[in-house]
Design a protein around this nucleic acid. Structure first.
Lengths: 168, 168
DNA sequence: CATGATAGTTTGCCGATTGAAGCAACGGGC
DNA sequence: GCCCGTTGCTTCAATCGGCAAACTATCATG
């Protein structure tokens, strides 16, 4: 390799930003169409992905990378909309099981997954070798970005960050 | 190469989500380290990227995919922190030029751009053909996702979220 | 001028997120 | 059995981002 045209890196970063932006905007619409907010939809999706459609707030908080108090608020809203219900654990009465309801499941399923469908559609129209290349590239980027020390950062730890200077 | 293993699409989507997640979490930390919030930092970064370090709220709103009123609020905070300043345009007095200050520039520069540096570093360690392939893949994905008809989608028309003030 | 379009701001509201504080249940050590 | 630290969750107060609608000021055009 001779010269590294910095232009190429920049183009990559721009493409990444486009991807990011598209996803963000899309998520807003997605949730809007479902009648709920993105954060609430994420809760539903996680619950839907669980075997028995239930988890504890703690697990949700960890998976979403937020604090337990936040999850409590989200669950409150979802519960008010009858999309989840709370059930006190029998074995450990400190715990609460958050269970997705039928209504909640139907919301998750009926969401018009436009972006994902677009991606899947375009993806499946690609040649086999193109698909393989794309997957490889994406995984490479993912590996480049979400290295461990990011997850070790205070924000992600999600349970214990106290040394946080407060942005005004 | 005979069957289209749907598993491959899923892996792509998972990789995408990892990228998204890493970026989101990283942005929080980034802004936190700079003593400002992510949205505010984005404004500074856009301004910093401009040739003369200034733009109008309208442009900012469009670029960020939010409404003008939101930008006004962000500029208010940045201005209170002396990181940008407002200047009435001479040519068209309806317009306001948002100019980044020296302090604003130093904030942008001093931000530990860990994620981007990681990406750039890894990217530049790649072979030339790998770089080309990665760029191609990223741009392809970006094109797949941020097609214009996202906001033209009939179902989601509601809101028409960026820059288009609803004419009631 | 009058009218309409354009650029920004203000106002009022809501959702997400956080840290701190509180409460209740659990569980180990004595 | 009883203290006491821990754990799981909730409540509270505050901040931030975001939006729509109303408003102000400025062009631009007939």
């Amino acid at each position: 390799m001779t010269e590294l045209p910095p232009i190429r890196v920049d183009e990559c970063l721009i493409a990444l930003r486009r991807i990011l932006r598209a996803t963000t905007l899309y998520e807003r619409n997605l949730a809007l169409a479902a009648g709920i907010t993105p954060a609430q939809l994420r809760v539903l999706q996680i619950l839907h992905g669980q075997r028995d459609g239930s988890t504890t707030p703690k697990v949700l908080a960890t998976q979403m990378g937020v604090v337990q108090a936040t999850v409590t608020a989200l669950i409150d809203k979802l519960e008010a909309g009858r999309m989840v219900s709370r059930q006190r654990s029998e074995t450990d009465r400190r715990q609460t099981h958050v269970v997705i309801t039928d209504k909640g499941r139907s919301v998750v399923k009926d969401v018009p997954d436009a972006l994902q469908q677009r991606f899947v559609g375009a993806f499946e129209r690609m040649q086999d070798w193109e698909q393989a290349q794309l997957l490889s590239s994406l995984e490479r980027v993912a590996a480049m970005l979400d290295a461990e020390d990011i997850d070790a950062s205070p924000v992600l730890a999600a349970g214990d960050f106290h040394a946080t200077p407060k942005p005004q």
